[in-house]
């Protein structure tokens, strides 16, 4: 999937402003951004429900059309189904639109765990079940590309975990997934690549691993913080990065590890009450990227 200089204006609001990006086959791609940053608008344009103001996009190297959409599984925002039809009958409609064999309906309902409720009307479903039915619908054509916009919106923690496991499971089968979300934890857990949008512009694109790599920061605590600080400063290779109210943050050269740190401090009669590696997380990186782009 490729986007070139995409624009969308709603009156004076420039919802998507010169967006260009590319998602490659097999990536689990997180589309991040604060509310109103243009995520859903962008996906809407890719799926032909929102008219672009200008720009180009292509799927598999070809301009988008309904034949391609038949092969893509997509949920945009809330699940939309006919409330007076059963889950099964709703999927029959989707299967007819996507020209998929009816046998798939039972299979996907089993995948999302709705098979037992398939004959109940959609309006009787809980929010989690509606969301799962939407995912079932998206899985119907056994799609190579899955587009999920806030798939865990409004779900309880158990539901969130179920959907997340499902996404990872689907991602492991080699499918491309584009996941729009503002839940960074979620993206960090499932995505391989991500892009950050702000005010309709792309402010970052890269792989999750790259964004989270770099030197490790260690948190250390001791009874006597002053002594700890003095000792660290005396050391030739321990680098004090920052002081927090109850702990010191230090970084180490590449050839030393946490054990070496602990040993060195103990030799100076400083005994640590706490030592832990602080992993970078996407949330911090995301906020850094955003504040940089806002500046």
């Amino acid at each position: 999937m490729q986007i070139n200089d995409l624009h969308k204006k709603y009156g004076r609001v420039h919802a998507v402003n010169g967006l260009s990006m590319q998602v490659n086959q097999g990536e689990i791609f997180g589309l991040l951004g604060p509310n109103g940053s243009g995520k859903t608008t962008t996906l809407g344009i890719l799926l032909d429900v929102t008219n672009k103001s200008s720009g180009e996009f292509s799927w598999f190297g070809k301009p988008g059309n309904h034949k391609i959409r038949q092969k893509i599984g997509a949920i945009l925002e809330s699940p939309c189904f006919y409330p007076y039809l059963s889950g099964f009958a709703n999927l029959q409609v989707v299967a007819a639109i996507k020209e998929v064999n009816k046998n798939r309906i039972g299979e996907v309902l089993k995948v999302v765990g709705l098979f037992a409720r398939k004959d109940d009307k959609f309006k009787t479903y809980s929010l989690g079940m509606k969301q799962r039915l939407a995912i079932a619908a998206a899985l119907l054509p056994d799609p190579n590309v899955l587009i999920l916009d806030e798939p865990t919106n409004g779900l309880d923690p158990q539901g969130i975990k179920e959907i997340r496991d499902l996404i990872i499971e689907i991602g492991n089968t080699g499918k491309t997934i584009i996941l729009a979300s503002h839940l960074l934890n979620e993206v960090q857990k499932v995505c391989t690549h991500f892009a950050v949008l702000n005010f309709g512009k792309k402010v970052y694109q890269g792989s999750v691993n790259e964004a989270l790599s770099g030197e490790t920061i260690y948190e250390v605590k001791a009874q006597d913080l002053l002594l700890l600080e003095k000792t660290i400063k005396k050391s030739a290779w321990i680098k004090l990065v920052d002081k927090e109210s109850d702990c010191m943050l230090v970084s180490l050269p590449a050839d030393k590890n946490a054990a070496a740190l602990n040993q060195a401090l103990a030799q100076d009669q400083v005994y640590l009450s706490h030592l832990s590696a602080r992993k970078k997380n996407l949330e911090n990186e995301f906020l850094k990227i955003l504040s940089k782009s806002n500046a």
Binding site: L47, D48, V49, N65, H66, K67, I68, R69, Q70, K71, I72, A74, L76, S78, C80, F81, Y82, P83, V94, I97, K98, E99, A137
Partner: peptide
């Protein structure tokens, strides 16, 4: 029901 939108997303042309 916003199903017109879903129909198009699912692969029906307008």
């Amino acid at each position: 029901y916003r199903t017109i939108r879903q129909n198009v997303i699912d692969g029906l042309s307008k």
